[in-house]
Every structure is written in C-alpha cells, then in structure tokens.
Amino acid sequence: MLFSLLAPLLTEVGAPLLKNLITKHLGGAAGDVGGAVVDAIADKVGVEANPQAISDAYQADPAGVGEAIRQVEIERREDWAAMLAEVNQTMRAEQKAKDKLTRIWRPLFGIEFGLVYSALGAAFVYAIAAAESPINAVGQIGGYLSTYLGFGASVLGVYVWQRSQEKRNGKA
C-alpha cells in the first residue's frame, strides 16, 4: 500500500493520530491498524480501499474527505491504544531481559542524547559568538552537525531495524 500518499493528507486535515498509525506499518498490531485505518477512511469516503483512491477523492473534495478522516480518527482511538500496548509490551520485555545492555539502552541513549546535544548547542552558540562572521560560522558548523546527527540517527535506525527483525523471528 502507498501509505506515504496519505501521511501529508492526514496532517493537512488535522488527523495526527491517524498519520502516526499509518506511518508505522511495520507489522504486528501497527500493520493491522494501518490497513484498518485505510479501510475505514475508504469506507467513509465511498472509494476503493487504497491510499491512491483516498488521495484522489481528497483532491476532488477536500472538505468532505477531511471531515470523513476526522470522524475516523475519533472512531479509531482504540486502535491507537492497541499499538501503544504493543510498544509497551516490548519495553517491558526489554526491562526483563537477561542481557544488561538490552535493559539499559533506552535510558543510556536518552542521557547521551541530552548531554551531547546540550554540548553541541553550547558549542554552536560559542562558535557563532566568537566568529568574525556569524553567518559563515553557521554554514561551517551546519555541515559538522549534519554529519554528526546523521551518524547518530543511522546507528539508532540500524539498532531499531535489527531489533524489529529479532522480534519478528521470536527472539524477543
């Protein structure tokens, strides 16, 4: 399914819960819920149950489709709760894991993020304040920040992807 077609549409009509539900269609409850959201919106709008048909209907009648989407968001709050329950189950399983790193990676990552980004912010302010040309300093620092943030996000992304694979294979 082309869920990416619906994400901007859902944001535009003010349905953030539905946007989160369909953009996290990685399997398990989230995948089932993402499909159910598309089905419910299509049913309300009266089109085929696929993101392209919903997007086309929205282009033809933004107000009508927007209202249908907002109604589905209100009706689908229990699905949001189901997805959160699955996430919470994963976190509880991590807390009970035998491996110490599996138990403490979230708090450690949070502490590291806070410390590193505070230091980066302070360095950024200092570099701008101490530079002869603050605009040039922003340009130079921007490249370094992008690289650093890209590496950090990549490491986290690989971990999350790998962990998802482990859960799908039953190695929770």
Results as ranks from 00 to 15, higher is better:
Ala131Phe: 08
Ile74Ser: 09
Phe124Arg: 08
Ala127Gly: 01
Leu21Asn: 00
Glu75Ala: 01
Gly150Arg: 02
Glu12Ser: 05
Ala68Tyr: 00
Ala30Thr: 10
Tyr126Thr: 07
Gly142Met: 05
Arg106Ile: 07
Ala49Arg: 14
Ile128Arg: 08
Val13Cys: 15
Glu86Thr: 15
Tyr126Gly: 00
Gln140Asp: 09
Ala172Asn: 13
Ala40Arg: 01
Glu67Met: 00
Asp61Phe: 00
Ser154Ile: 13
Glu132Trp: 08
Glu73Gln: 00
Gly34Tyr: 08
Ala7Ile: 03
Met91Pro: 02
Ser146Ala: 14
Pro134Tyr: 10
Ala63Pro: 01
Arg70Lys: 10
Met91Leu: 12
Ala60Tyr: 09
Gly150Ile: 06
Leu17Tyr: 06
Ala40Asn: 05
Glu166Thr: 06
Ala36Asp: 14
Gln165Met: 09
Thr102Arg: 04
Ser133Glu: 12
Ala131Asp: 03
Glu75Met: 01
Gly14Met: 10
Ala127Trp: 00
Gly152Val: 08
Tyr126Cys: 05
Glu67His: 05
Lys96Glu: 15
Gly142Arg: 00
Ala29Leu: 11
Glu73Asp: 00
Leu120Pro: 00
Glu166Asn: 05
Arg76Phe: 03
Lys96Ile: 03
Ala53Trp: 01
Ala7Ser: 11
Val160His: 12
Ala127Arg: 02
Val116Phe: 12
Lys167Gln: 06
Glu78Val: 12
Phe109Ile: 15
Leu17Trp: 06
Leu26Met: 13
Phe109Trp: 13
Gly28Val: 12
Ile128Pro: 07
Gly66Leu: 11
Val158Met: 11
Lys171Pro: 03
Pro16Phe: 09
Val65Arg: 08
Ser118Ile: 04
Gln89Arg: 04
Asn169Glu: 10
Gly46Asn: 06
Lys19Cys: 03
Leu26Ile: 04
Ser146Leu: 15
Gln59Phe: 10
Lys44Thr: 01
Ala137Val: 14
Val72Glu: 00
Trp80Glu: 10
Asp61Cys: 05
Thr90Phe: 15
Val45Gln: 02
Gln89Cys: 07
Leu149Tyr: 11
Asp43Asn: 11
Leu120Ile: 00
Leu2Pro: 09
Val138Gln: 11
Leu101Val: 00
Gln71Lys: 03
Glu94Ile: 03
Trp161Pro: 00
Asp43Pro: 01
Ala63Trp: 02
Phe124Thr: 07
Gln140Pro: 02
Ala30His: 08
Tyr58Val: 07
Gly152Asn: 12
Ala97Tyr: 06
Gln140Tyr: 11
Thr11Glu: 14
Lys19Glu: 04
Gly35Ser: 09
Ala129Phe: 10
Gly121Lys: 11
Gly150Cys: 09
Leu84Arg: 12
Asn88Ile: 07
Ala130His: 04
Asp56His: 04
Ala82Asn: 14
Gly139His: 14
Ala85Val: 14
Ala57Ile: 04
Leu5Trp: 01
Ile111Phe: 01
Met83Val: 15
Lys98Ile: 05
Ile128Trp: 12
Leu9Arg: 11
Glu112Ile: 05
Leu120Phe: 08
Gln165Arg: 05
Lys167Asn: 04
Ala85Gly: 13
Lys96Trp: 13
Lys100Arg: 13
Ile141His: 05
Lys98Ser: 13
Gly139Trp: 14
Asn169Lys: 05
Glu78Asn: 14
Gly66Glu: 15
Ala131Thr: 09
Ile54Gly: 04
Gly35Asn: 03
Glu166Ala: 13
